[in-house]
C-alpha cells in the first residue's frame, strides 16, 4: 500500500509512546484526475500530532496543505480526488479503510475543522445559534432548550460578548473576528480531540489575527486537544506551534520543533520562507522572496522538486530525489545538503 517505503521514516519515535500519536498521517498520496491531466497533489505526506500539541503546517498556497486536511477529514470529492496510497491513523485506527458512515461519525466528534473564511463557512440562512445547536441536537440528542443553553456557553467560551443575544443573529450581522470565533465555537460543540484550523486568520486583520491565535492556543491547552494549524504565514505560528512541518509540492520537506527550525532551517525552501518574512530583530534588512513559481502539479520537476528555484541547487538535485535526512531531535529535511544547510544557513 505504501508507495514509497523509504519515505515513511518521518514518524518521530520519541512521541510514539505507549498510545502512539493522536493522529498519524503516513506517506499519503492524493491525485486529482482532471480534464487537463492528473495533478499529483500529495506525494507522500507524513506528519503526526499528539494530544495537547500544536503542529504548524507551512507552505506556499497550492502546496497541498488544505488537501491533506480534507483527506484527513474525508471530505474530498471523488471524483476528481483519489487517495492512491498511504495511511491515516486516528487514535491508532486506520481511517482510510473505514466505511463512509463510520468516518462521518468521527467528523465533528473526533476531528473537527475550521475554515479560512468564516463568512462563507457559516450558512447565511441560519442563525449562528441554530448552526451550533443543530449538531448538539442531532449528534448528542439534546433538547432544543439544552442545546440553546450549551450554544450560549460555547459562544461565551470563545468570548463573544452578549452571547445570549448573539445566538439569535445571522452570520452577516457578525464582524469578521466574531464570525471566526463563532466558527470555532461550532467546531468545539462535540468536543473533538483534534482540531484542524485551515488558515483561520488569513481573512482577518492583524490585531484580530493575534486574538484568534491566542484563543485557539488557550482552548487547545484547556482541553488537551491536538491542533493542526495550517498557514502560509510564519509569523502566525511563531508563538503557538510546538512543531513545524514545511510543505512543498505535496510533500513535507522539513520537519522539526518550532524553535530549532526557526533558528537554523534545514531546507533551503524553509530558509526562503523565513527570509521573506519581516523580522523584528534584523533592522534595515531587505526582504527576499523565493524566486520563481511553485511547480505545476501536472508536471513536477525531476529530482528535488524545489531545484528550479533553489539557490543552492547542484547537478545532483535535478537527478536524484533527496531522501529524508535525519538531523536528530526529530528533525528531518528532504535536501541533499541538509546538514550543510543547518550548519551554514
Amino acid at each position: 500500500m505504501t508507495a514509497n517505503p523509504t519515505e515513511s521514516v518521518l514518524t518521530d519515535p520519541t512521541t510514539n509512546g505507549q498510545d502512539g500519536p493522536l493522529l498519524e498521517v503516513e506517506d499519503l498520496f492524493v491525485e486529482f484526475r482532471t480534464r487537463d491531466g492528473v495533478a499529483k497533489v500529495l506525494n507522500g505526506v507524513s506528519y503526526h500530532v499528539d494530544a495537547g500539541e500544536t503542529l504548524a503546517v507551512l507552505g506556499e498556497s497550492g502546496s497541498g496543505k488544505s488537501v491533506t486536511a480534507q483527506t484527513i477529514m474525508g471530505i474530498l470529492d471523488t471524483p476528481p480526488a483519489y487517495v492512491t496510497g498511504g495511511s491515516i491513523r486516528f487514535r491508532g485506527q486506520e481511517l482510510l479503510s473505514q466505511s463512509a458512515e463510520k468516518r462521518r461519525q468521527l467528523r465533528g466528534d473526533g476531528i473537527a475543522m475550521i475554515f479560512q473564511d468564516a463568512l462563507s463557512a457559516l450558512n447565511p440562512v441560519f442563525t449562528v445559534g441554530f448552526q451550533i445547536e443543530e449538531q448538539l441536537r442531532i449528534r448528542k440528542g439534546m433538547s432544543r432548550k439544552e442545546a440553546r443553553k450549551r450554544a450560549i456557553e460555547l459562544l461565551d467560551l470563545v468570548r463573544i460578548p452578549n452571547a445570549k443575544g448573539r445566538v439569535r443573529q445571522y452570520p452577516h450581522e457578525f464582524s469578521g473576528g466574531m464570525r471566526q470565533r463563532a466558527m470555532i465555537a461550532m467546531s468545539l460543540a462535540l468536543d473533538p480531540q483534534l482540531l484542524i484550523a485551515d488558515e483561520p486568520t488569513t481573512a482577518l486583520d492583524v490585531t484580530v489575527q493575534a486574538q484568534i491565535m491566542d484563543l485557539l492556543a488557550e482552548i487547545k491547552a484547556e482541553r488537551q486537544m491536538g491542533l493542526i494549524l495550517i498557514t502560509h504565514d510564519l509569523g502566525v505560528v511563531a508563538e503557538t506551534a510546538d512543531r513545524i512541518a514545511v510543505m512543498y509540492a505535496g510533500r513535507i520537506v522539513e520537519h522539526g520543533d518550532a524553535h530549532s527550525v526557526y533558528k537554523a532551517p534545514g531546507h533551503p525552501y524553509t530558509t526562503g520562507l523565513l527570509n521573506s518574512l519581516p523580522r523584528l530583530d534584523l533592522k534595515g534588512q531587505t526582504l527576499e522572496t523565493i524566486k520563481g513559481l511553485p511547480p505545476s502539479l501536472l508536471n513536477i520537476p525531476s529530482g528535488c522538486p524545489f531545484h528550479p528555484r533553489c539557490p543552492k541547487a547542484q547537478s545532483i538535485c535535478s537527478a536524484e530525489v533527496p531522501v529524508n535526512h535525519d538531523l536528530g531531535n526529530g528533525r528531518y529535511s528532504k535536501c541533499h545538503f541538509a546538514e550543510e544547510v543547518v550548519r551554514n544557513g
Binding site: M73, I75, R107, M113, Q116, A121, N123, L190
Partner: peptide
C-alpha cells in the same frame, strides 16, 4: 464553504 463545513462537522 458552509457545505464543506457541514460535512466536516459530520
Amino acid at each position: 464553504d458552509y457545505v464543506k463545513a457541514a460535512r466536516a462537522l459530520g
